[in-house]
Each structure stands twice: as C-alpha cells, then as structure tokens.
Design a binder for these strands. Structure first.
Lengths: 162, 162
DNA sequence: GGTTTGCGGATATTATATATCCTTAATTCC
DNA sequence: GGAATTAAGGATATATAATATCCGCAAACC
C-alpha cells in the first residue's frame, strides 16, 4: 500500500502556489524545474488538481496554475484525493460468499465485519488529512526553511512566472 | 493506494483459526476451499503470518496452522502488517533537495513538513488497527452470522482438520 | 503569426500484485 | 519401513498499476 509519488509532488507544488502573489500564475515548467521533476508527468498531477477545482489555470505565456481558493480553505485530504482518488484502501471482495455452508442471501444485510474495521481505519487516515489545511503546511515550512532560502525560492519562481 | 487482497484473506483465515478447538490445526487446503481462494497463493499469505509468529505450524496429515496466541492478544495491525509489510504508505523522496536556491545541507535536520503530516495520518490508520483485537472481530462475526451457519462452518472445517 | 501554455489521448517502460509450479524436509498413518 | 500429506520456499509466468514520454489541439499572449 504505497501512495503515488504524484501525491508528494502535488503537495509541494500547492505549497509553492500558496505563496504566490495575488493574481500570478506558475507554469508546469517552473514547478518541474524547481522540484527537479519530469515536466510531462508532473503535468498529469497538476491536471488532477485542476479537475478537482483546487487550482485555476490560464493559457499562454505568463499562464499556468494558481490556487482556486485561499490556502486556509484547502485541506491536505482534498489534494491527496485529487491525485490518488477517493477509493478506500481496502476493497472487500466478499469472500464470505464462497463459504460452502452459507446458503445464498444470508449475511448480506451489512458489509463484512472485516471490511468495517478496515474502513474505520481508512476514515481515521482521511480525518487526519482533512484536519490539516494547506495554510498549516505553509506555516510549518516557513518555520523549517531558513528565511533567506524561502525568499530566494520565490524570487526564482517569480522570475519564471511571466 | 490499495491493500493486497492477501490482507483480506489473512484476516478471514485468522478469524476461522480463532474458532478452532485447542490444539487443532487447519491446513491451507481447507482454508482455501472454505473461502474459494487459490490454494498456492493463499499459502504465501499464511507463510507471512507464520514468519510474523502469529501462527504455529506443523507438518504432515492433520497438520496446518493454528494461532500462536489467544485471539485477544492479536491485533488487526499485526495481521495486516505481517502481510502488507510495515513500511509507511507515504515515502518522502525529499524533492526539496532539488530546489536550486537551496545550498546543500540546509533544512536537513528534520524530515520534510509534508512527510510529517502524511506520517501522522499513517499513524492514525495504524492506531485504529492496533486497537482492534482479533477477538473483537470474532465477536462481531458471531453476531452477524446466523448461529446455525456459524456452527455448520466449523463442522465443515473440523472434518478437514484431521 | 509565432510562441507559450494547459489539456487530453496514445504509447512505452518499469514495478508490483497475482498466480502457478516444483522441490525439499518434516510428520502422520498404515 | 513406506506411502501420503503438509508447510516452506525458490523459480517463473501473467495481469495490473505506476511511471514516463510524445504528440496534436485550442486558447492566450506578444
């Protein structure tokens, strides 16, 4: 059970977008170079964010991506689910159906007891991610990263933002 | 991010093993037939349980698997981790290292802020599974499954347990 | 009109999950 | 002692998903 690397990419990209000045867009190319990622494949992750309406896009030079909402109104979970999908990590294939002692139709009222536990754990995972906002990440990052590097990064980025 | 189907298989098999009379073993063949699963591949899942010391095994006719401990002392997490592994679902590839504005050696003291959040969610998932004991599952199952089917199932199983 | 951009489709490559087969050694039963 | 049965583990094949690249399109900018 491993998340796609695109999840990591999307989160880091959103953190950068959260720091962009109002109205500016940042292109796939700039985001890929900043993070040392394959441009074409990163583009797929950004398209997922766009389809989930987490980012706005615009075309042409000076085009690219920006957050569709303030970073305080975007949760980790939304970003993760945009890329990874909303499907639960445990899929019940109902193997209890195969029990040769089980007449058809029995015990079909509720989902399987095993699945209920696994889904509860899945919910706990999602709830944790739901509670963390993108603005929280930006806050933590600006504590962790030395201020001059943080500033240099955004200068570097804005030079490429058209 | 999808768990292997072997996780589901292992959980259902442990639930059956938990209901076995003291000292009896149940073979891969019987467990596979009961659940309608491919015997050879299910065997790999059971071997994982054995390697994790969750089950005891013995050879020969009337051999097979039994729980190594009372079901109240085995958690869901142990079974899941035995099959799925203990690795976290999010792996940080440290793409912040690629930031061209970042001199080497900076911000390497703590793990990445993104990873810390993802790992916290992973812990929430594991904690939920850690709190559920195999005996809890057996309890739920015996509420869900009609008593006569539950009884028939164990008669069926014991006929094959040598 | 030329350049840049996001978007989506098609395709190739790699890794992982799923599944089967076979050999070995231990155990039970006759 | 000999035949049958079992778990263990290595080797291998197949299917599916993740990773990655390439191309053509339409919109936006200069």
């Amino acid at each position: 059970m491993i998340l796609k690397s695109q999840v990591e990419w999307a989160l880091h990209c959103c953190a950068i977008l959260a720091g962009l000045p109002e109205g500016r867009y940042l292109s796939t190319k700039a985001l890929a170079e900043l993070h040392g990622l394959p441009k074409e494949y990163l583009s797929k992750a950004l398209q997922s964010l766009s389809q989930a309406s987490l980012v706005d896009t615009t075309l042409g030079p000076s085009g690219g991506y920006r957050l569709a909402r303030p970073s305080s109104e975007i949760s980790f979970l939304e970003i993760v689910e945009a890329v990874e999908g909303k499907a639960r990590s445990f899929t019940c294939t109902n193997i209890r159906e195969n029990n040769p002692c089980r007449p058809a139709g029995y015990c079909d009222s509720k989902p399987c007891a095993v699945a209920r536990v696994m889904w509860e754990a899945d919910e706990a995972w999602r709830n944790t991610l739901r509670r963390v906002r993108l603005s929280d990440l930006v806050g933590t990052l600006s504590e962790d990263v030395p201020p001059d590097i943080w500033r240099d990064t955004f200068e570097w980025v804005l030079k490429r933002a058209g």
